[in-house]
Simulated assay, not measured.
Amino acid sequence: MLDANKLKADILDDMRVELSDEFDRNFERKAFFSDKWKPRAHDYPKGSLLVVTSAMRRSAQGEVSGDGVRFSSALPYTTLHNEGGTGFKQVRAHTRKSKKGKIYTVRAHQRKFNMPQRQFIGDGPDTQRIIRGVIDDNLKKFNLSLTEFLRK
């Protein structure tokens, strides 16, 4: 017997798992599926692009919410990396030495920077393909197509 509520819960949970895996793989691909990320402006020897400590990668969590799956992160910089945009960096007061040897003080200030979009979570053709696959796989358990299920 077809239990529509259980089917829906199974589909949403499978979507959460499949999309979480694929979004995690985007860090390995250095791309949002096949859309490659823009390279860094400067070489950074401590780690791969967006994977220095893996904190952002680990922080991205999927959660079944209502009729969908919602992805979020507790880290404040995740949205800036995923969507791109302008950010501000706090620069502490410090001293500098000029080429001529003179020491001077730099006041604390904010420095504005532009972050290119390096999306790893979101909607798109590949996301929709995964969602359709999850729905089809769950409907096959009941020998149903999507149109047959919607008629019931």
Rank of each mutant, 00 (worst) to 15 (best):
K112D: 12
H81I: 04
K140A: 15
K36H: 09
H42R: 15
D136I: 08
G133Q: 07
H42K: 15
K8V: 07
A93L: 01
F149E: 05
D3K: 14
K46H: 13
E22V: 04
P45D: 14
L49Y: 00
L12F: 02
V134L: 08
F33H: 06
F142G: 09
L150M: 11
P116A: 11
Q119N: 06
I103S: 14
H42W: 09
R151S: 09
E28H: 05
E148A: 03
L146M: 01
I11A: 08
G101W: 14
L49F: 01
K100S: 15
V106D: 11
G66M: 04
P76T: 14
G133A: 03
G87T: 00
E63Y: 03
G68A: 08
F120Y: 14
S48V: 04
V106Y: 08
T95V: 11
N138V: 07
R129W: 06
N26D: 03
S20E: 10
Q110M: 05
D136V: 08
S34A: 13
R107S: 13
F33P: 02
F32K: 00
D126L: 04
D24Q: 13
K46Y: 15
L144W: 07
K112A: 12
G87Y: 04
F27R: 02
G122R: 10
A55N: 14
E148N: 03
D35E: 15
S65L: 11
I121Y: 09
K99N: 12
V52L: 13
G122E: 13
A31V: 12
Q61F: 00
D67P: 04
G122K: 10
K100A: 14
K141E: 10
G85W: 01
F88A: 07
E63G: 00
G62P: 03
F113E: 07
S20D: 08
S54D: 08
H94P: 03
G122L: 10
I103M: 13
Q90S: 06
P116T: 11
L75T: 02
M15P: 02
R107E: 10
I103G: 06
E148Y: 01
F142R: 06
K30R: 14
N82H: 11
V69F: 02
Q117K: 15
T127M: 13
V106W: 08
L146K: 05
S72H: 09
L75Q: 04
H94Y: 08
T105N: 09
S54M: 00
V69M: 06
T86S: 09
E148I: 03
A41F: 04
L19K: 04
L49T: 00
Y44H: 15
Y44P: 08
D21S: 12
R57D: 03
T127A: 14
F33M: 05
F23R: 06
S34M: 02
D35M: 11
K6P: 07
V91A: 06
